[in-house]
Amino acid sequence: MHSAPALLLERVERAHASGSGRFLLEVDAFAVRRGEAVALTGPSGTGKSTMLDLLALASRPTSAGRFVLATREGGEVDVAAAWDAGDLDLLTATRAVHVGYVLQQGGLLPFLTLRENMRLAQRVGGRGDLARIEELARRLGIDGLLDRKPATLSVGQRQRAAIARALAHGPEIVLADEPTASVHPALADTVLALLVEQVRAADAALVIATHDPERAARHGIEICAAILATDGTARSRFSRPAGAAP
């Protein structure tokens, strides 16, 4: 039996100002299940980050036909309705518990140690699990660095720590915005492999934005490319209907 998609979007739009002027992101249909890994690709300015922010409940859609987040326990959060009602508390609480976000860089608070960064995510997400922190750190190869602050680490170590932080509270949706862009190319494969492996192990859905579809494909991530408008308007579209999922 197929579980409901962790995220299901239909007719969701987000307009935003980009460097070259107004830009419209259209999502006619997009679904992702736990256990799936999807890479959003496309030239810069096509709305990959905007899409991730929408999925993270961190950015308000301009309009939304349907936008539902299904939890592992079988609950549903009507994200579209929450944005409509301005129920930011519900969105914040949902994000805290169910979403983990890996940023391109700087996904850690500089004034906390790695362990404290992960503890914070757990406490805000209502899940205290010190053993999970140790386990994640061991698997990501940063178990000796847990009591250090981000500034004392290398870029690669920081990025692995950011992944551990995003996974610390056991979210079912993990988002990553160019997670390998700021690390050395030789390290990029390692970081990406660790991300995919840990998300699979946690039975979560993974959506990343990347400008490097080949590398993503090598790690078994399904590609979802931005479709640019052909009529010359500044529009792009991501499409991955629920029925199309294997």
Partner: peptide, 14 residues
């Protein structure tokens, strides 16, 4: 600002 945005993203409320 950036740290604040990150804390919002992690799930701290306004």
């Amino acid at each position: 600002r950036r740290d604040f945005a990150l804390m919002r993203l992690i799930g701290l409320s306004g």
